[in-house]
Design a protein around this nucleic acid. Structure first.
Lengths: 272, 272
DNA sequence: TTGCTCCTCACGTCACGTGAGGTGGC
DNA sequence: TTGCTCCTCACGTCACGTGAGGTGGC
């Protein structure tokens, strides 16, 4: 049993708008069962209703059309379900991120936390195991989540001794354009390069350093305080920014326990 | 104390990209402290950091720029917090909606529920208290949430006796274009018009009727089954679609207990 | 026959991102 | 002086929505 439907009838059956159906036809996502050669009238079939309903559900979950297309083209149920599950997981991560931002918004609106003490510090060059890559802001959390374990693993494999807290070096474009070169490093004695992980000398710098307590989501607050300090004292220099992870995800379970030193480049010897 | 910053420096301080800052300037959301007359160089001030951080937070929560502008322009903290709270509530509602859709997606992918029995029914014209308005799909839940209580309130005020379940009439454009004329009605004896609520004769129709059990989010499944039935039996007529709310939010707490009759217009006397 | 449904462009939306091509400031 | 930062267009993105202007089908 099947029945033929005009686009309007199919729209009422599936609760997809006529405009959406024409768009899905244009992009080849949901082809009508037939198209009249002379009039161009689209013809749908009742057998297409189930597919249309699936498309509607996935779009309501803001699944991008290329991904929807992949779901529809899945050769079997397992592949299809995996694609859907992956999307739901993306949504879950985004939801968690939203929760963090809401918390951080409350913190921002609350009476301002007394900002810590800015320290001017000369940092010596140091031997490290490091990974350097072009990373976008959106992916930085996941990237760090794989990079640092990798660094510690190489340290162990190559017999290196870790001599201090891990850190990151962020090129200006990372902030100014939303993506840029990022170096993750762990200071070591001994050890050796291994694949992407290189034995690398991190250069000396003069930094204004401010300790950030709590989630990474709030880091911009500390950046603001630190950068304002450096600017107002006329000591700000250009160059990459450093972060030192004194206590992070590997050390404490709760984000509120994170301790991060933010290092802003300054001109040497101009301390206060 | 204050300090002057180039757009790049301000970007690194606030973690807003240079492109975003220029855009916020263009649309008048975040004006630089100054602009050099000859070179066009923007100049920001450290005193603007806090505002920029707020903008960043609100944008991370996908607050539309006009709303952000309203928050920034709020004359006092209370107004500002109210605007933010309203946005968080919108997000909360959307989150709930997402949860419903995920559940409904699972239902769709599960082995198909045996569909109920389609009944062909001649419905007589009936006197009702009714509200009619142009409503978009996005707002239909909220609209019904105010319309039906209003109908019952007028029924009580004007001494009307409710004689059956409430219903809705949906013009084809409601589905085909995503917005259209919707009539909410409650059948009565007695009663009188009162403001937007009119004493209105709902016309007679011939309907194919299928009972929908569960959340409204799943209604498209029943629409698909019912419309396919009518089409495949060659009895589908054009005209508005009716829903009768046998058990809805006012009657049962859990969505899974909702019972809704969907009525699809058919040609009279062509039953089976 | 009427008018209702369907058709195809072309352009708009929203918040920026992506270059191209060019100039100013240290 | 070099090159780095900044500038302004103009156009792209994504999934449709919004008309305009016109034709086919019952």
């Amino acid at each position: 049993v099947s029945g033929s439907l005009t686009i309007g009838e199919f729209s009422r059956l599936t609760h997809l708008t006529v405009k959406a159906l024409r768009h899905y036809h244009d992009v080849g996502l949901l082809e009508p069962a037939g198209v009249d050669g002379s009039s161009g009238y689209r013809r749908y079939d009742t057998s297409q209703v189930a597919t249309a309903q699936l498309v509607k559900r996935l779009r309501e979950l803001e699944m991008p059309l290329p991904v929807v297309r992949a779901v529809l083209a899945a050769p079997d149920g397992a592949t299809r379900n995996a694609a859907i599950a992956a999307h739901l997981e993306r949504m879950e991560r985004q939801l968690e991120r939203t929760r963090d931002v809401v918390a951080s918004l409350r913190a921002l609106l609350a009476p301002p936390v007394p900002t810590g003490h800015v320290e001017l510090r000369h940092v010596e060059a140091a031997l490290t195991l490091a990974i350097r890559e072009h990373v976008s802001r959106d992916n930085i959390a996941r990237w760090c989540g794989t990079a640092f374990p990798q660094l510690y693993a190489v340290a162990e494999r190559t017999g290196a001794t870790v001599t201090g807290p891990a850190g990151g070096i962020y090129g200006p474009e990372f902030f100014e354009s939303g993506a840029g070169e990022v170096t993750a490093f762990v200071p070591v004695e001994g050890g050796a390069s291994d694949g992407d992980v290189r034995l690398h000398m991190v250069p000396a710098v003069d930094l204004a350093v401010l300790l950030h307590l709590g989630p990474f989501t709030d880091l911009d607050i500390t950046y603001g305080a630190l950068g304002s300090y450096a600017t107002e004292h006329g000591i700000a220099a250009t160059g990459p920014i450093r972060e030192y992870y004194l206590a992070g995800p590997d050390d404490v379970a709760d984000q509120s326990g994170y301790r991060t030193e933010v290092g802003w480049p300054v001109h040497p010897g101009e301390g206060d």
